[in-house]
């Protein structure tokens, strides 16, 4: 749906000091113009961007989140944190999608300190994209409060995601190709679903129950999750003694 023309998006930008922030500076020095949506947070490395930063920005109703780092291979730092930013962006997009936030609202770009013009191009393009999507929730057709609940559940699980990433999802090759291949691998998808997304969905179901939902159908609707999926998770949760199912009514075990 088209956004109202007076919509002024807010995009939170995490820029690495050495490349993208320098590119943004050069863009200014060169007076290249772009729309005034970006709010910059300067970090030393794009690898410093925690998953939690991204979720927090959206939970506070950012219309977009931008991460800008050095080109791959050009990271200012020896550990090459921009590869981790790349990996994180793949993971974050999947999680955002799961909780109902359009993953296109998150953008990762490489801009060097010499690429003022490129920074303006990226900002013009991403700015137009977000403007077109409209305020958070509008293109998704979801209540912001529901998205926030999902983001809250995701935030709770960040420590877990980090452990899983370390134990199961370490990318063996530090090349862009290596990252793309890894995240496109056939066995990655089911494993990621099982280890990350299922846990997240369960967390969200528990959250919905805590908020007072009482039927599987209502939960499915609220979370924007397929009812069959909800039923499967409820079944598992009930086996673990976390919830009690009574006909169509569902209750938190602890609340009973």
């Amino acid at each position: 749906m088209a956004a109202p023309s007076d919509f002024k998006p807010i995009i939170v930008g995490f820029l690495c000091n050495w490349c993208c922030y320098g590119g943004a500076d050069l863009c200014g020095v060169s007076r290249f113009q772009y729309p005034p949506y970006l709010r910059v947070i300067r970090l030393m490395c794009s690898g410093r961007v925690d998953l939690e930063f991204i979720f927090r920005a959206f939970a506070k109703k950012a219309d977009g989140v931008f991460i800008g780092g050095c080109h791959l291979g050009d990271c200012h730092y020896n550990p090459e944190g921009n590869y981790d930013a790349l990996g994180n962006s793949f993971v974050a997009k999947r999680i955002l999608e799961n909780v109902g936030v359009d993953p296109d609202r998150l953008r990762l770009e490489w801009v060097s300190a010499g690429e003022g013009i490129r920074f303006a191009e990226v900002m013009n393009e991403f700015g137009a994209k977000i403007k077109n999507l409209g305020p958070l929730g509008s293109s998704e057709g979801r209540e912001v409060a529901d998205l926030q609940a999902g983001l809250e559940a995701a935030t709770q699980l960040v420590p877990y995601f980090k452990l899983v990433e370390r134990e199961r999802f370490r990318v063996p090759k530090r090349t862009e190709e290596g990252y793309r291949e890894f995240f496109a691998r056939e066995d990655y998808e089911p494993l990621f679903k099982e280890l990350v997304l299922d846990k997240l969905t369960m967390g969200r179901i528990m959250g919905a129950l805590r908020a007072g939902e009482d039927s599987a159908g209502a939960i499915a609707q609220k979370l924007g999750v397929d009812p069959a999926e909800v039923a499967r998770h409820l079944n598992l949760l009930s086996q673990q003694g976390m919830v009690r199912i009574d006909g169509s009514q569902v209750q938190l075990a602890l609340a009973a």
Partner: peptide, 14 residues
């Protein structure tokens, strides 16, 4: 330490 902060983004327990 060079202060890139990559480790911080990796630490599960902050």
């Amino acid at each position: 330490c060079k202060g890139d902060g990559l480790c911080v983004a990796k630490c599960p327990t902050a």
